[in-house]
Amino acid sequence: MSTTTIQPTSTFDPNDLKIAFSNKTDKELKLAYFLFKMMGKPTLVKLGGVASVWALKLGLPIKGLVKGTIYSHFCGGETAQEAQRAIRRMANARVHTVLDYAAEAKEDEAGFDHVLDEIMRNIRLAKVTGEIPYISVKLTGIGSRDIFQKLQEGAPLTTEEQAAFQRTESRLDIICKAAYEANITVYLDAEESWLQQPMDELAEKMMLRYNEHRAVVFNTLQMYRTDRIAYLTDLLKRSEGYDVILGIKIVRGAYIEKEQERAAEHGYPSPVFHIKADTDRSFDGAIDICLQNLHRVELCAATHNEASTRYLVNQINRQGIADHQKRIHFSQLYGMSDNLTYNLANAGFNASKYLPYGDVATTLPYMIRRAEENTSIAGQMGRELSLLEAEIKRRGL
């Protein structure tokens, strides 16, 4: 069965299965169902992840199996050129791409330069093709985690570390300048709380430099952190009077267990909420703050949460935000929550997928993290499975 071309409507309905899975063939639909069924078993996910990593390290012939299953569902290809097939399929459904080089960077200057070179190739590709409006950048891919942590802790840097951090900032500036000139957008990923402050400072510096007329650079706020509403409010206050459009991407957060364990180990208060409802309120509160300041903010709501997605859609409609496609973005991970992404795009909203790519062996840790995160999201697996099952039944497979 070939994929289906859907004509746009004006109503967002996340339960419209025909639109949600319009880009999936019967074979892809069955594979997705199988994968989410397996991912609903956390122990199996952990054991399978460890076994797969070691099998690839030992040179066992499992690459074809991995590439034909979990890799093909969550990744676009081993190169950016390979990923263009997925990019074009999504573009046909009015879904944009956030291209994400997902390989784990080597923690040295050569590794950081390699990531820079890869991102610069992506920017040139985006400029030539016009098919990649967004790219994702992890600051730990272009700079040392240890130096970010020392900066956060206020520890003095050696002369060599100061020079290394200047090179990190230079790499980021090269990326942002190229994105500005190519008329594309850079989403800077968030990291653990004990690394984030100097990353926030770099993001703010780049926004002041390149975001005069549009949000070229977005910083990511993990709203499960207890301090992010205060940070957002303070950022808005500090940026008053500057010619800058703040790029704000909000997510719920990906490191909750790690954050709680480290706080307990080091004896400081947990920086993240313990109750999901508090995170939900924080996320929706950030939406409200951004909408109140939309004259100087561009917002990306990167979430798989249907309630928050509906909330933002309803606010856009209620407030009559006519230029929402330029100022408000929705985003989900490739291979997940297609019912949100494709129905948002079909209803005329700016919707995108984070599309990772990279060599199977080096992106496998990324895919395992995605799988483990998904198993920990309350109700996520059940929701995905019920939708896939309903579509399989609808198609009579």
Rank of each mutant, 00 (worst) to 15 (best):
N293K: 14
M381P: 08
S352F: 08
P271E: 03
A345K: 05
C300L: 15
M381N: 07
A301G: 03
Y334L: 13
R327Q: 08
P269W: 01
D280A: 14
Y357E: 06
G335A: 05
Y268I: 04
D284E: 15
I328V: 15
N305H: 14
R296V: 06
C290V: 13
L344P: 06
N305T: 09
E391A: 00
R296N: 02
C300Q: 11
D323T: 04
C290S: 14
S337Y: 13
D323Q: 03
I275P: 01
S386F: 02
R369G: 06
P356G: 01
L312Q: 01
L364D: 05
I275H: 12
S331A: 15
V297R: 01
G358M: 06
Y268K: 04
I328Y: 01
V272T: 08
D284F: 03
K276H: 13
H295L: 04
D280P: 07
Y357K: 02
L388M: 09
Y357N: 02
R394E: 06
A390Y: 13
Q325C: 09
D278C: 00
Y366C: 09
L299D: 11
G379Y: 01
I316V: 06
H274N: 11
L364Q: 00
I377E: 00
L355P: 03
I328R: 08
I289L: 14
R383T: 15
I287M: 12
F349I: 06
H324M: 13
L388T: 03
R370M: 05
L299Y: 13
N293I: 14
A301D: 00
Q319V: 10
N339E: 14
T341I: 07
I275E: 10
I289N: 00
A371T: 11
L364I: 05
L291I: 13
L291K: 02
R383Y: 15
A286S: 13
A347I: 10
E373L: 05
P269D: 01
N339W: 13
A301R: 02
S308A: 07
L333Q: 10
I321H: 04
D284C: 14
